[in-house]
């Protein structure tokens, strides 16, 4: 794949809409299913992933000419692990309250497929600047996906939002369990696909 010709805003929206990591690429499903029991969890993990994605993308884009092609995957993993450790230590030191809630999940970011995939398909072929925007778009897409799932599951499962009681009752207690995460992801994917279909249909209808 040659270096990208997309503009900054195209790169940014690519990650949020047309290549949304959770709903379109269906990558990193474990956190999407396991962690999004509340909006806050989704938000915190999304922010952590955003930082790791941007920093790793920039690092790989900066040193791409020095990476031996045979050991590129170990190098990516090492880069991601380094940034994850840095984020983990900083969170533990300066945001102890947030860390208490999601400390164990932050370390799992090393294994998120979406980050390695972006490094392999994008950052190692593009400049630091476009990698930055791509990472930001992908991270934001992931963040929004996680928050949407958390919103639905927290509201339906616990009747609260951000920990505040909204409904007063718990409509579907089942939604806090991991299995319900799959339902949510499935429905969201269907919605995304439907919107795309409808959009394309209206476009072709206009042209003809």
């Amino acid at each position: 794949m040659p270096a990208t010709t997309k503009t900054t805003s195209q790169l940014l929206f690519n990650g949020i809409l047309s290549e949304n990591p959770i709903f379109r690429l269906a990558l990193s499903m474990c956190p999407a299913v396991g962690i999004t029991t509340t909006v806050m969890n989704g938000l915190l993990l999304g922010v952590a992933v955003l930082f790791v994605q941007v920093f790793s993308g920039c690092t790989i884009a900066a040193i791409k000419n020095h990476i031996h092609p045979r050991i590129r995957i170990p190098t990516y993993t090492l880069t991601i692990a380094t940034w994850v450790t840095v984020i983990d230590l900083i969170l533990a030191a300066y945001l102890p309250d947030a860390y208490k809630q999601m400390g164990i999940f932050v370390k799992l970011i090393v294994a998120f497929a979406i980050i390695t995939m972006r490094l392999e398909t994008f950052a190692c072929k593009n400049t630091v600047k476009s990698s930055f925007w791509d990472g930001l778009g992908m991270g934001l897409g992931f963040l929004l996906g996680m928050m949407t799932l958390g919103f639905v599951r927290e509201l339906l499962g616990m009747g609260t939002l951000f920990g505040y009681d909204v409904l007063g009752v718990r409509p579907l207690l089942f939604f806090v369990l991991p299995a319900a995460g799959f339902f949510c992801v499935g429905f969201m994917m269907a919605i995304f696909n439907y919107v795309e279909l409808a959009y394309n249909r209206s476009k072709t209808a206009k042209q003809s």
């Binding site: 020095h66 090492l78 380094t82 900083i90």
Partner: peptide
């Protein structure tokens, strides 16, 4: 391959180690 892998591991180690040293005090305090 060996040298570049060793070198990247070393750099990663230095980065992680220095962040650890910088944040350790605040973490223990917390």
């Amino acid at each position: 391959i060996t040298t570049s892998l060793t070198l990247s591991c070393l750099i990663a180690g230095v980065v992680m180690g220095s962040v650890f040293i910088l944040t350790d005090k605040a973490k223990r305090h917390n």
